[in-house]
Amino acid sequence: MNRRSFLMVAVFLLAGCTASTGNDGRAARVRAPLAARPADLQVRRVEVGVPRWYDRPYVEFGDADHGYALFASCAGRPPSSDCPARLYATDDGGRTWRRISHPRPLAPGQRLEVTSDVPALLVAGEGWYYSLDDGTSFRREPGAVTPSVLRALRGQVQVDPRTGELVRWQGGGWQPLPSRSPLARPTSVYGADGLVVVTTVAGGRPLLAVSFDGGVTWRRPRLVTLEGDIATLRVAASVAGDVWLIGERAEPGRFPALWHYDGDWRPIVPPRDPGPYTSAVPFGENRLAVSGREGGAVVLADGNGDLREESWPLHGDHRLTVLADGALLARGPDDLLIRASGEPGWVRIVLESRRPRTDE
Score class of each variant (00 low, 15 high):
Pro108Glu: 13
Pro108Ser: 09
Pro108His: 11
Gly109Asn: 12
Gly109Trp: 09
Gly109Tyr: 08
Gly109Val: 08
Gln110Phe: 00
Gln110Asn: 04
Gln110Leu: 14
Gln110Gly: 12
Gln110Tyr: 03
Arg111Glu: 14
Arg111Met: 05
Arg111His: 09
Glu113Gly: 01
Glu113Pro: 01
Val114Asn: 09
Val114Pro: 11
Ser116Lys: 06
Ser116Pro: 00
Ser116Val: 13
Asp117His: 07
Pro119Ile: 00
Ala120Tyr: 02
Leu121Ile: 06
Leu121Cys: 10
Leu121His: 11
Leu122Gly: 05
Val123Ala: 02
Ala124Glu: 14
Ala124Thr: 12
Ala124Cys: 00
Ala124Asp: 13
Gly125Arg: 14
Glu126Asn: 05
Glu126Pro: 00
Tyr130Gly: 06
Ser131Trp: 09
Leu132Pro: 06
Leu132Phe: 12
Asp133Val: 02
Asp133Gly: 11
Gly135Val: 07
Gly135Ala: 08
Thr136Ser: 11
Thr136Trp: 09
Ser137Gly: 09
Ser137Leu: 03
Phe138Gly: 07
Phe138Ala: 10
Phe138Arg: 02
Phe138Glu: 05
Arg139Leu: 14
Arg139Ala: 10
Arg139Asp: 01
Arg140Trp: 01
Glu141Tyr: 02
Pro142Trp: 07
Gly143Val: 04
Val145Asn: 06
Val145Met: 14
Thr146Lys: 15
Thr146His: 11
Pro147His: 13
Ser148Lys: 13
Ser148His: 03
Val149His: 03
Val149Met: 08
Leu150Asp: 13
Leu150Tyr: 12
Arg151Asn: 08
Ala152Met: 10
Leu153Arg: 06
Arg154Ala: 15
Gln156Ala: 15
Val157Lys: 12
Val157Tyr: 03
Gln158Met: 03
Gln158Leu: 03
Val159Pro: 06
Val159Lys: 14
Asp160Ala: 12
Asp160Gly: 06
Arg162Tyr: 10
Arg162Gln: 15
Thr163Glu: 09
Thr163Cys: 05
Glu165Pro: 00
Glu165Tyr: 12
Glu165Thr: 15
Leu166Phe: 05
Val167Thr: 11
Val167Lys: 06
Val167His: 01
Val167Ile: 07
Arg168Leu: 06
Arg168Cys: 03
Arg168Phe: 02
Trp169Met: 02
Trp169Ile: 01
Gln170Phe: 04
Gln170His: 10
Gly171Gln: 04
Gly171Leu: 12
Gly172Lys: 07
Gly172Leu: 13
Gly173Thr: 14
Gly173Lys: 15
Trp174Ser: 02
Trp174Ile: 03
